[in-house]
Design a binder for these strands. Structure first.
Lengths: 82, 82
DNA sequence: TTGTGACTGTAAGTCCGTC
DNA sequence: GGACGGACTTACAGTCACA
């Protein structure tokens, strides 16, 4: 089955967050969002809005287009397996 | 004054849409969104959600991260002029 | 530290128009 | 072809409590 764009995005930010040694709480605080919302995003329950993407990217110290590039690679590399 | 992220995004997709010779109506149809919403986005009235970004990018035949890269360049190159 | 349910508010997104 | 308005529905966004 094809992985959802949301799931891929969640996977990417979780990876980056872990790499920075940040907790969901810290990422939420610094990006002025909510911890439970970060949790939701990482579990692929929502599509973030563009400004949320930018706020998160800033805290994760990555250029937004670089973050999206990671998402693209995972998302478009998928083979359509049932 | 600092240009809004929404305005920058709108500017970028309008530029790309014009370059493809597409009308707002066509972009809306192919990306399965609404014509008035495309108009709103181009005028910087909304932040699109991530999946909207991806749907639009696909129609504009550009990788999402390349689209965001264009936004980044315009957005972050801004000097904080009052 | 994170997942999750319940809840609320606002913004994204659609559809109907007119100019 | 595009700006703009109104009304509407859905989904994102944010808060709190609890395991």
């Amino acid at each position: 089955m094809k992985r959802d764009l949301r799931s891929v995005f969640g996977e990417v930010i979780r990876e980056l967050r872990d790499a920075r040694g940040l907790s969901q709480q810290e990422l939420a605080d610094y990006s002025e969002t909510d911890r439970t919302y970060i949790s939701d995003l990482e579990r692929g329950l929502n599509y973030p809005s563009l400004n949320t993407v930018y706020k998160i990217a800033q805290v994760l110290e990555i250029m937004p287009h670089k973050l999206i590039e990671k998402v693209d690679k995972l998302y478009f590399s998928q083979t359509s397996v049932s």
